[in-house]
Amino acid sequence: MSANKGEHRFGMVIDLDKCTGCGACSVACMSENNIGTLLDETDKIRSITWLRVYQIDNGKAFPDTQIAFIPRPCQHCEGSHGHHTPCVSVCPATATDYDETTGIVSQIPTRCIGCRYCVGACPYHARYFNWFDVPWPKGAERGLSPFVSPRMRGVVEKCTFCYHRYQRAKNKAFLEGGSVGEKDYQTACTEACPSGAITFGDLNNPKHKVHELAKNPLAFRLLERLGTNTKVYYVSQRDWVQRKLDNYLAGEKLPVKAAS
């Protein structure tokens, strides 16, 4: 794990043993970020869900079957050498960049030229292309948030860790003096989760909960061995869940985690 030179490293720790796959995080994200609905949502290639909840199972027959859910926001990869974030490194339009001071991978849809190179580069399917304009039903504009700009067809969008909330929290801090605290900047999914499975904060700040949680020996990251050095950690006691979330050879032991 390379340390970010920046001030903050915002990240997330998701406890998969608490997650019950209710989808509240995903829907909260949609309402926070003005994500629309297409007429045919069965088409998962075109459906846009910044935070998607995947379902996995242990592959065993009834009644030993077990299921688990994997909420997957943008993993905000830091990359292993010189911030080699997969999507950022391929964008020809600088429509996405790695923010050194927050560790957030930005996405500016209005700057995007729609080449979709980043969509292909992302190992997590976290980037979405707007194949169509969103067919907002008549009257739906009244329910849209002014804090996130609605997108048009032909551009890529993705999870931003609700960056607009950080912007607003900073506004308040400017006015009142002081700095943005842990409670002042929380993502919509974190707040919504009825099981409290998601924890969000600054991984660099020892006072934030995520700082300790990410050090849990049971914490791991999605496809960690790709070297994407992501900032979304997952925790699970279940061996099979850990195995499903990275590429392991049959019979290969899980990496020994350092004792916390």
Binding site: D99, S106, S149, H164
Partner: peptide
């Protein structure tokens, strides 16, 4: 002052 995308975009 920082001029990264997310300083001024939403």
């Amino acid at each position: 002052v920082r001029d990264a995308c997310f300083v001024c975009h939403k």
